[in-house]
């Protein structure tokens, strides 16, 4: 199915739901569950993925009357998903306990090797992703929710500044500045480990 026919099919389902057919939402749920879960998995801790994905669909359902037929449903859904992830971190940071655990010696060795390697490929052949993920989570946990989201979207996922701004609902200037600062903070955090 091409994008246009998919969009019009989505719009028809949305009309059905808004006119009172609650069960029609199941069609959208099945059609886009993988898409939403894939986005959520990248931004949220594993144990919270299901909870946040549920919140995304509830939020989508409540916002359906505001959906404009001319827009792409998938794009609109992605925006809601990213903003729900951002809201999760904002709430989480408000009530979180500051982590006291630091990285172990093996992480320090890993980082030394990672930055000393001539190419990431040769480095990757020798080391597992486990250490990389732990270092990344450790560093991201020390950033603000705003910096975290921008860094994940622009630096790690490769979205353009304009795309990230659209997803987060911020101005492009704000995303550009934040992206630059967040990247500097990440580098500083990683250098502190040495």
């Amino acid at each position: 199915m091409d994008t246009d026919s998919h969009s019009s099919a989505d719009a028809e389902v949305v009309d059905q739901i808004v006119s009172g057919d609650v069960n029609a939402f199941e069609v959208l749920l099945h059609r886009y569950e993988a898409h939403v879960v894939r986005i959520v998995k990248k931004h949220i801790p594993f144990d919270k993925v299901e909870e946040v994905a549920q919140d995304v669909f509830i939020r989508v359902y409540q916002s359906l009357p505001n959906f404009k037929r001319d827009d792409s449903f998938k794009q609109w859904l992605s925006t809601i998903t990213i903003r729900t992830c951002y809201d999760f971190w904002r709430k989480h940071y408000r009530y979180r306990e500051i982590p006291v655990s630091s990285l172990s010696e093996k992480h320090q060795i890993w980082l030394e090797e990672a930055t000393a390697a001539k190419s990431s490929q040769s480095f990757d052949e020798r080391y597992s992703q486990k250490e990389a993920r732990e270092v990344l989570d450790w560093a991201l946990d020390r950033l603000s929710p705003e910096d975290r989201m921008v860094l994940e979207l622009v630096y790690l996922e490769g979205y353009s500044v304009k795309e990230a701004a659209s997803l987060l609902g911020w101005s492009t200037v704000n995303v550009k500045v934040r992206s630059f600062r967040a990247r500097k903070k990440l580098h500083k955090l990683i250098k502190e480990i040495f």
Binding site: F46, L111, S120, F123, D124, R133, Y155, L156
Partner: peptide, 13 residues
């Protein structure tokens, strides 16, 4: 090099 490693770790999620 570090960015590439972190990106790959991020995609693993």
């Amino acid at each position: 090099a570090l960015r590439q490693v972190l990106r790959r770790a991020y995609q693993e999620r």
